[in-house]
């Protein structure tokens, strides 16, 4: 398919990228392009300017701090995360990235692109909410940190506004995590997904695909009854489509919440 005419720039520095994004209302950051190029073909998005982030070295890489915090550059690909020895400090990250689409998409798609596109069926928004990640956003006004559960604002909308860039995702240490999904075909788009993260006796659950943003739940305990009650009390009103009715998505949310918690509990 032929794309609409577009201008292209590939800056080497974050500040230059911000200048380019700020200079034109129709400018948009291009990360791995595994969503954006396709929506441009469909004309669902028609940016005037693409600001390719590929050459900005400071947006890449994975660092493990002495306190166990993982810092992931926004342009880090799924494959980088899967292959990274450092990223194994939080094993769930590589495990979930390895369930996204296929080799080709994992080679190009980035963690920053995944969360900034904030498609409600994406894997990483609920995961990062459950494990309590923090997003670093820079704009002309400077840098700020936003917790993952405040980052996702709506379908395709995040706290990284026009003219801003997500630069880094920080993940605290931990290992008692789980992720359960029912996808459309193996490693396909999720119908419902649930991420769980346990610390001592508390649980954080984030349910994806049932609302515009991940639904964060904090059940009183990790007992099945408490998890079921938390999902019930959330009064989920999921969308329906050709793949699943709203009722079935509600059912999956409960089943997958239990599975995600069980997986996380095994890893205490």
């Amino acid at each position: 398919m032929l794309l609409r005419e577009v201008e292209y720039a590939r800056p080497a520095r974050v500040q230059e990228a911000l200048r380019l994004l700020g200079a034109n209302d129709g400018a948009r950051a291009l990360a791995g392009g595994q969503t954006l190029i396709n929506v441009m073909k469909a004309r669902a998005a028609s940016p005037d300017v693409l600001v390719d982030l590929a050459d900005i070295a400071e947006l890449r890489g994975i660092e493990l701090g002495s306190d166990g915090t993982l810092e992931l550059g926004a342009m880090t690909t799924y494959t980088d995360i899967i292959d990274s020895a450092e990223a194994r400090a939080r094993p769930i990250l590589g495990e979930v990235c390895n369930q996204i689409a296929d080799v080709q998409v994992r080679n190009r798609g980035t963690i920053g692109g995944n969360v900034c596109s904030n498609d409600p069926t994406n894997h990483l928004p609920p995961l990062l909410v459950a494990i309590g990640a923090t997003m670093t956003i820079v704009g002309q006004a400077g840098e700020r940190s936003v917790p993952a559960d405040e980052f996702f604002l709506g379908v395709y909308m995040t706290a990284a506004g026009p003219g801003e860039l997500l630069t880094k995702i920080s993940v605290p240490p931990g290992k008692s995590d789980g992720f359960a999904s029912v996808p459309i075909g193996k490693d396909g788009t999720c119908i419902v997904n649930v991420a769980a993260s346990l610390t001592n006796r508390t649980a954080r659950l984030a349910i994806g695909c049932v609302d515009a943003v991940p639904v964060l739940l904090t059940p009183d305990s990790t007992e099945d009854a408490a998890v079921r009650k938390a999902v019930h009390d959330a009064n989920l009103d999921p969308p329906w489509d050709v793949h699943a009715s709203a009722e079935y998505r509600r059912h999956l949310a409960e089943v997958l919440a239990l599975r995600a918690v069980a997986q996380a509990a095994e890893r205490r």
């Binding site: 292209y8 590939r10 291009l30 392009g33 190029i37 590929a54 080709q104 998409v105 080679n107 190009r108």
Partner: peptide, 13 residues
């Protein structure tokens, strides 16, 4: 050396 789908990449990239 990286496997990609060339319909999801611009030539300029």
């Amino acid at each position: 050396g990286t496997l990609v789908k060339s319909c999801m990449m611009l030539a300029v990239q």
